[in-house]
């Protein structure tokens, strides 16, 4: 068959595509479980960190998660909630975590937000993924930024990210947090995402789900 004939060209393209796609599918299949396990581990680490729980000595994040955290799956047909809640401890002193996400400046930002049972304080915020500008908006993933949220009391049920010293708001009682210098839009996006998360926690609390 001539190399430039239509039949050869079509046949060749088909065979080559099929062969390469087969190997990709194979590679994907072989690593699928590992990738899923990595993702689950990263998620569990974030949930533990947001809830302020640390794995004990010699304990893996997976083990700590299974020991400490209770997953509360939403009841079928609950409007507006598809993702599970995570609870640490019980009763009045329990802390609840849930994933929150929303648009950032460049791409989606997703995080785990944890609050107390009364939704009066943030227990912690842990970034899971973000694609903000490295060195600017990307700094929302840095420890000083997320540490500000730890134990922050809400003011009017919300938080406010404002222009501050750029090195972290030291007062956990005012419901205000320092924005990242040079990343106004990303900081505003975090504020929006956290406040939306707080609103849905409040709805759950009012619905008697946080106890």
């Amino acid at each position: 068959m001539k190399k430039d004939s239509i039949a050869y060209t079509v046949g060749f393209t088909f065979v080559v595509c099929a062969a390469f796609v087969f190997f990709l599918a194979l590679a994907n299949e072989l690593t699928k479980d590992r990738v899923a396990a990595n993702q689950r581990l990263a998620e569990r680490r974030a949930i533990l960190a947001a809830l302020g729980a640390e794995p004990g000595p010699g304990e893996s994040a997976d083990e700590a998660y299974l020991r400490l955290v209770a997953e509360i799956r939403p009841e079928a047909g609950t409007p507006g909630r598809a993702s599970p809640l995570y609870r640490l401890g019980a009763g009045e002193t329990a802390a609840y975590a849930a994933s929150v996400s929303g648009p950032g400046l460049w791409g989606g930002i997703s995080a785990v937000l944890a609050v107390d049972a009364q939704v009066s304080r943030i227990v912690g915020l842990e970034l899971v993924s973000q694609n903000e500008t490295p060195g600017l908006g990307g700094r929302i993933g840095e420890a000083w930024f997320t540490a500000q949220f730890r134990g922050e009391a809400l003011s009017g049920g919300r938080i406010r990210v404002r222009q501050g010293s750029g090195s972290g708001d030291p007062d956990p009682g005012n419901g205000e947090l320092d924005a990242v210098t040079g990343a106004t839009l990303t900081s505003a996006a975090v504020e929006r995402i956290v406040n939306a998360g707080l609103a849905s926690f409040e709805a759950l609390r009012d619905g008697g789900k946080l106890r």
């Binding site: 190399k3 430039d4 050869y8 393209t13 080559v16 990709l24």
Partner: peptide
Amino acid sequence: PAKVRMIVQVLVISFYVIIIDI
């Protein structure tokens, strides 16, 4: 085949890049 040379190049390149990603 000459007609699909670049298509095949892109296919092979993306194959390896996806492998690296995986």
